[in-house]
Design a protein around this nucleic acid. Sequence first.
DNA 1: CTGTGACTTGAAGTGCACTTGAACTCAAGG
DNA 2: CCTTGAGTTCAAGTGCACTTCAAGTCACAG
Lengths: 152, 152
Amino acid sequence: MTDLLTIGELSVRSGVAPSALRYYERLGLIRADRTGGNQRRYARAELRRVAFIRISQQVGVSLDEIRAALESLPGGRTPSPQDWERLSASWRGRLDERIRLLTKLRDDLDGCIGCGCLSLQRCTLNNPEDALAGEGPGARLMLPRPASPEDE
Amino acid sequence: MTDLLTIGELSVRSGVAPSALRYYERLGLIRADRTGGNQRRYARAELRRVAFIRISQQVGVSLDEIRAALESLPGGRTPSPQDWERLSASWRGRLDERIRLLTKLRDDLDGCIGCGCLSLQRCTLNNPEDALAGEGPGARLMLPRPASPEDE
DNA sequence: CTGTGACTTGAAGTGCACTTGAACTCAAGG
DNA sequence: CCTTGAGTTCAAGTGCACTTCAAGTCACAG
């Protein structure tokens, strides 16, 4: 029971496929020591990093932004609880915003269903002023830019 | 002021790029008549369809599912208000679920920040039982399957 | 020492939702 | 009639987050 994990072990414990872990390493999100035979060995702290990565993805943050956040850690490679708190808190706003927009969408949808204006003309639903645009996770999650109606 | 729209007009009114409209047509999401010169002319009803498509995407529904939903319309090609209501309502559950999961994530994140257990070991945050998995919009929005911790 | 399963690499492939480019035609105003 | 901007097609490219593949190496139990 050494305190270094193989890629297989890290994969099982983190729930992330080995291929994804290698991918994260290529992107500079995690790091690994190597054995004499060139195999990866992960410090346990990497488990925390992987957890942070997955949680951040759930919030809708891209890997590139996560990388930037992790790189912002002062000096030391192993994030302290304070680092963790700061990073987690920094996504909080994003999360709030996403929840807010989805909730607004739901309310608008309800309003539309209720009011019968389902042709979506002058309905708030079709009102582009702020509609989950930008900041989508993954590739293009939400919408590049929403609709701007006029007539119909 | 004919009641048929060119692709440029539909693009401006819907906020969707012409290339995207052609793409939607290829996928069978919208349809267009053609002029003698082979140019697309859209009935105004297509504006509603495009609006529905964009809204559905915001809810996190893939184009393929949207296509299936639109195909489910009984007979007539122009969706009635009732159709609209039914379709909109059918996404409602997805929307609720997404909001629920994001809210749970936020609460967990708060809990983590508050309780200081930021190493994310036995924290709910890292609890995979239900974590925005599946059903992501776009490509792979949320997560294929989340983490399953154990030690650290 | 050998077999087996876990590991290594780089390159290529996947899925979604589009966008871009090249080469061309159409529609409408002057 | 001619120019110009808007339209057409098909093929290929983009971005993200990975996965898959082929060909080979490593670690360890027996």
